[in-house]
Structure formats: C-alpha cells, structure tokens
Design a protein around this nucleic acid. Structure first.
Lengths: 151, 151
DNA sequence: ATGTGTGCAAAAGCTTTGCAATAAA
DNA sequence: TTTATTGCAAAGCTTTTGCACACAT
C-alpha cells in the first residue's frame, strides 16, 4: 500500500557503514543485538520508508507483529527511525540516520504513493517561538494531493 | 484535556449570524435540522476547538458518543468543521466557518495546551506542485513544543 | 408517509500488555 | 546467571457499523 518514491538515488554513506552505525546506536541505547533487529535494520536500509507495520510484516516474512512493534519502538528511541503520522490511522516509520536534515512528504490521496520533499519550508522555529512563547519546537508537515498518475 | 487558547478575541461576525450560516450549510448539504445538531453547532461556536469527541461529550452531557461521531462527520462533509490529527491517536474537530483562511497550531507536549498560529508559512502550494507534479495539494502542519507554563 | 437521525450494543482496526519460554551478554 | 527479547493470546482504545425505534419534512 505504501509505495515510496525516493528522492536521493545516490547515498553518500555506504550501506555497510550505515548498518554499523545503526547497530551502534542500538548498542549505545542499551539494546541487545538480535537476529530480528539486524533483519529489520537491513530492511530499513533498503526500504527507508515511511512504512506501516503491515508493510514491514509482509515484506519480512516470519517476523511477529508484536516483535515488529517493539522493535520499531526501540529503534525510534535509539534514534534510528522516526515515527510519522499521515492521519489515516496507521503509524509509519522512516529511516532517520541523518538526524539533522529533515524532510517532508506528499501523499497521493488516491493511490497512497508517497514522495519526498527535500527542503523544509515551514516557518522558522525561532519565529514561532517568538510569536508563541513555546520552546523546543518541532513540527510535522505533510502535503496531500493527486499524484501525476492519478490525475 | 484539550485546553485551547484562542487567537482572535473579537469575532467579526455575530454568533447568531454564524449559527444561521452554519445551519444553512447543513441544510444545503441535505442534512435535517435536529436538536442535537443545533446543540453541537452552538457548542462549537463557543468552543471552536480543536476538540476530541471526548471533550465534546463531557461538555455536552446527554449526547451519545455515536451521535457525536456521526454529527462530526456530517459537519465535516457540510464544511462546518475540519478534522485535525495531532498524531496522538485522537481525532479533533475545529470550527471552519471561514474556509479561506486556514491556520495551524502549537501543541504543548506536556500539558496538551493548544495555541493558534495565525499565519500559514508553509511552502507555497504552487512550488510543491511544480516540484512534484502533484495537484490539488492541501497540507497539514502542526508544531509541538513546551508552552510557557511547562518550561 | 418516507427517509433521516438516534441510541444501544456489538464489531473493527491498530497498537499494547501479560506472561512463560528463549536467547543474549 | 542475569537481564532483555520473543511469541502467542488477550486486552485497550478510539472509531465504525447494525439494527430497531423515534423524529423531521
């Protein structure tokens, strides 16, 4: 259901290096190295998401649903993944190995296709902080429309 | 749970006029006038939201949960309300009697307070359309942080 | 009179939790 | 050996659906 069209075909860091870095993040966060976690990390390196737990279960046969949910929670807390909510009742997870650079998505409301928008163009956080008095602000920004194929 | 701090203390249009306009939108959309719907419309005029179904049920005693859900759906389809998703598993609804001007929110991750951000500063839709080929784009943008009281 | 709205109960759907068995360090 | 992880089943939660009765036009 979640077809994802990647934006950056050439990765600057090798997959092996990313894998090691990811496993290290898990270790640092106090998580043990298990076969399932390795499988899931490798899976996300190839399919960076955003993916639902169902997407993941279908494409990594043999993994229990609960194991997936718990792994996703660990990965998020270790900083490997970030959770995304498109507002359709399903949680999605996306690879997040470059914390700094965040991006957003356009979701096709017809077919569910997801594309990445490279540059974040939301209002500067400093501006919102000044206007509202809030601090430590993060934001969630997603676009919805009809993809070229569905128009 | 959803405390909302309004941004615009003075309404340009009288409450009675808004009420009539809202009921007219319902009528135009083919919905009948019922006591519950009138109650809910009046409630939203005083509490523009965003509010969860639980917020609404607590503050309009006597209304059945299912009636609320179905009314909210009618109101949304008639254009009175818009649905908002803060990503916490609860749907919220907000008065939407001025379709044109849309705004966003800052949500306190500690106490749940919600403030309004008047000006939308997301990337122009035309720019996203040109970049992605998507059409009929709408967007969802919410900010999360610590409100002044919770810092 | 006809079709819509309402309320109760039950179902759905995704996500979490409990617990005993298993595996990692 | 001590602590975390896994898998199955069961529970939790919000939201939706079914159906008979009541109400609006």
């Amino acid at each position: 259901m979640s077809k994802v069209h990647p934006h950056s075909p050439t990765a600057p860091e090798s997959r092996d290096s990313l894998f090691l870095r990811a496993m290290n993040l898990l270790k640092t966060a106090g998580y043990k190295k298990t076969i399932h976690r390795e499988t899931l990390v490798r899976f996300f390196l190839v399919n960076p998401g955003p993916l639902t737990s169902e997407d993941i279960q279908k494409r990594t046969k043999g993994l229990d649903k609960v194991t997936i949910y718990r792994s996703l929670a660990s990965f998020e807390s270790a900083g490997l993944l970030r959770k995304i909510d498109f507002g359709d009742g399903l949680l999605r997870y996306e690879l997040n190995l470059n914390d700094g650079e965040h991006h957003h998505h356009v979701i096709c409301t017809q077919c569910g296709r997801v594309d990445v928008i490279d540059h974040c163009e939301a209002s500067p956080v400093s501006h919102i902080e000044a206007q509202t008095g809030y601090r430590s602000i993060r934001h969630s920004l997603e676009f919805f429309g009809l993809c070229p194929q569905c128009q």
